[in-house]
Design a protein around this nucleic acid. Structure first.
Lengths: 208, 208
DNA sequence: TAGATTGTTAATCGATTAACAATC
DNA sequence: TAGATTGTTAATCGATTAACAATC
C-alpha cells in the first residue's frame, strides 16, 4: 500500500491503537516490541498487526521484533500526525479541569491552547497552565491559534450550545464528553465518549 | 438470528451504539425514530442498522420507523443489560469527582456503588452522593456489593496498583481512564479511554 | 392514493486467521 | 545452530452497500 492513498477506516483505527501502545512501551523503556506483545495490549490479532505494518514497509526484524522508536515514527508518518496540534476545551468545571491537568494529550503532541466557560465566576481562573476565557472570545481565539479540534466538557444541557460555538469558530473535529446527541454540519466530525455504553458492551461478553 | 446465540463483537458494539442514541432520543421526547436518523448520529449505514435489528425480529413499521421505547427494550433484552449494575470507582481526584457527579452511568442503569482512594486526606470526604473509602476495604466492599466493574481514575503511575486491587477484589471488567498499559489476567477485560489517540485518528480523516 | 421507510436480497469488499517459509 | 518472530499466502468469514419489493 502506498502512503499517498487514503487509509481505510479500519486500518487508521488500528494504527492509532498501535501508536498508543508504542508510546507507553517507550515510556516503560522497552526498546523493542513484538507483534504478539502489541496484540496482548490491543486485543488485535498479531497476524493482523504484522499485515497492517507490512503494507507500508518492512519495519521489523525476524526473530527480534520491531524497534519501538522507529515504529512510532513510521506510524506517525503514515497517520500524518507529526508535530503539534492545538485544541480548545469548553467547560472549566470538574471534568474540564481534569482534562486540562492530564498529560494524556500532551503525550501525543496535542496542546490544550484555550479553555472556555460561560460562567463569569470561572473566567480568568487558573485551570492547569491556562486561564479560562469567556465564550464570547471563542471565535477570535480559535482562529488566532489555528484550532480545529474542540473538546466539550459541559453538562448535556449546554453541549449543543458549546458545539455550535466551536463550529462557528471554525472547529472541524469535536470530542463530546457529554451524553447529548449533537446536531452538526456534514463537514464536522463528532466523537462521543460514553463509558456507560462501552461498559454495557463489555458486560455482554462477560455474561455470555 | 437467535438471541441465545452469542453476538459477534461487531453486532454487539453497534447495538450498544443504538442504545445510546435511543436513550437520548427518548430524553428529547422522540416517540419514533427511523434507521436514517440513527445513522446520522452513529455514522453507521442505515441498511446495516435495519439488518442488525431485523435479525432479532420485526421491530419497525414500514413508512413509519421504530418506536423509541420499544426498540430500547428490545436491544436491552438482546444485550442482556436490563436491571441495575454496580460499579467501583478508584480515584477521588478531579476526574473521579467528575465521573461520580455525572449522570452518564445512571442513565444506563449503572450505579456507582463505591469510591476508593489511597490518600488518607480524601477518605471519608463526600464525592457526589458517596463518601470515599480506603483502598484497604476494596476487596470486602466489592464482594459485599457484588461489583464486577471497576473504573480507574488515577494517574498513570498508580493505575497498575489500582487494577491489581480491583482484580484482587473480584472485578472482571476494568475501564481505564489513564494512559497506562495494564497487565491483567486473561479473564479480565480492559477498556482504555484515550481521547488523544481518537483525535489523532479523526485528524487523519480531516487532513486527507 | 402518495410518500415514506422497513425488511431482505444479492453482490462486493475488507477483516480475520492459520500456516509456514524466510531470516534474524 | 536453535529459537524466535517477521512477512506473506491462501482461504474463510463477516461487514458493507445498493437496490427494491413490501407495506404502513
Amino acid at each position: 500500500m502506498n502512503t499517498s492513498e487514503r487509509l481505510t477506516v479500519g486500518v487508521a483505527a488500528r494504527l492509532s491503537r498501535y501508536l498508543q501502545v508504542l508510546t507507553q512501551a517507550r515510556k516503560m523503556g522497552k526498546d523493542r516490541i513484538s507483534s504478539q506483545e502489541i496484540a496482548e495490549y490491543t486485543n488485535i490479532n498479531a497476524t493482523q498487526i504484522r499485515r497492517d505494518l507490512s503494507a507500508f514497509g518492512r519495519f521489523g526484524k525476524r526473530g527480534v521484533g520491531y524497534r519501538t522508536d522507529a515504529l512510532l515514527d513510521e506510524i506517525r508518518k503514515i497517520l500524518r500526525t507529526q508535530g503539534q496540534h492545538n485544541l480548545a476545551l469548553v467547560g472549566a468545571g470538574r471534568l474540564g479541569s481534569a482534562i486540562a491537568s492530564s498529560p494524556i494529550f500532551a503525550e501525543h503532541g496535542i496542546h490544550i491552547a484555550a479553555i472556555f466557560d460561560t460562567d463569569p465566576e470561572k473566567i480568568g481562573e487558573r485551570i492547569g497552565e491556562l486561564r479560562a476565557s469567556s465564550m464570547d472570545d471563542i471565535a477570535q481565539i480559535c482562529r488566532e491559534r489555528n484550532i480545529i479540534v474542540g473538546v466539550i466538557a459541559v453538562p448535556a444541557e449546554s453541549a449543543q450550545d458549546a458545539a455550535d460555538a466551536l463550529i462557528d469558530a471554525g472547529v472541524k473535529i469535536v470530542f463530546n464528553y457529554s451524553e447529548a446527541l449533537l446536531d452538526t454540519p456534514a463537514d464536522v466530525q463528532v466523537h462521543t465518549s460514553n463509558p456507560a455504553v462501552e461498559l454495557l458492551y463489555a458486560m455482554y461478553f462477560h455474561l455470555t
